[in-house]
């Protein structure tokens, strides 16, 4: 019984797929952001698994940067959500067509 690299990659793929599925079928902006976080974490699992199996610190450095970018993305994204929410009292993305040409 060993946990081989394939299992980690499989878990990563499944988690990424669930995040993508949630991003496609949900309508709430906040829940969509959470699904993006799920996808980022799936990528992190793959990075760390490869870094461990390859004995290479680069994967963990990549995870570090992914964490940083995720934090910045959430800050800006939630700022946009708050700014939009001041204009219209809903966070459903279907109603956000103010930039439609």
């Amino acid at each position: 019984m060993t946990v081989s690299l394939q299992w980690y990659i499989g878990l990563s793929v499944v988690l990424f797929g669930m995040g993508a599925l949630g991003l496609l079928i949900r309508r709430n902006v906040l829940v969509m952001y959470m699904c993006i976080e799920l996808m980022l974490n799936a990528a992190n699992i793959a990075f760390v698994a490869f870094a461990e199996k390859l004995n290479d610190i680069g994967g963990q450095a990549a995870v570090f940067f992914v964490l940083v970018v995720a934090a910045a993305e959430v800050v800006v994204g939630l700022g946009i959500v708050v700014a939009i929410f001041r204009r219209r009292p809903d966070t459903t993305v279907d109603d956000l067509h103010m930039m439609k040409g």
């Binding site: 939630l78 809903d90 459903t92």
Partner: peptide
């Protein structure tokens, strides 16, 4: 941060 925004905006139980 997510929870702050959710509760600050009061968007819970609104999605159809």
């Amino acid at each position: 941060l997510f929870l702050f925004v959710i509760m600050f905006l009061g968007v819970d139980k609104r999605e159809v």
